[in-house]
């Protein structure tokens, strides 16, 4: 038990990113406001970024910029991968927000359940 607790303490970044992920997941699933759903999705994305970047962390390492006299750097590969992820997250958020603007224009509400109710009475 103490062994598991110590391991969790050593991998604190992973644990925090999992907690962030669950918070974002909860926001995404429980809120019916579409903007809040997007916020929850962004929190989930941030958790994944934190998770990946912390896998490359080396204890005592500095940022991977080659300078004379520095011995240990953190792993640059997850950082480079996550740069791609951030751009994808921005693109997805922008496109989703523009779709939400259109939804608001045609239904007059941002509530997903309200939109579903309006659609069910239309048909």
């Amino acid at each position: 038990m103490i062994d598991v607790a110590m391991r969790l303490y050593e991998n604190m970044y992973y644990l925090v990113s999992v907690i962030l992920f669950v918070i974002g997941f909860h926001t995404l699933l429980t809120h019916s406001n579409l903007i809040k759903k997007i916020i929850g999705m962004n929190i989930m994305e941030t958790a994944v970024f934190l998770f990946f970047v912390s896998t490359g962390y080396v204890r005592g390492g500095v940022a991977p910029i080659i300078e004379p006299g520095v011995e240990q750097y953190v792993n640059p590969l997850p950082t480079a991968l996550i740069l791609t992820g951030i751009v994808v997250a921005v693109s997805v958020t922008a496109f989703a927000l523009s779709l939400i603007v259109k939804l608001y224009e045609s239904y007059g509400t941002l509530d997903a359940e309200e939109i579903m109710r309006i659609r069910s009475t239309e048909l």
Binding site: V22, F25, Y57, P64
Partner: peptide, 26 residues
Amino acid sequence: VVFGLFAASLIDLASLYNDATKDYFF
């Protein structure tokens, strides 16, 4: 379930990325 899956995968994650590729880059 999500939390448990992540927590279960914490065992040996650091070695996932900190192996040979890192040394090659440096």
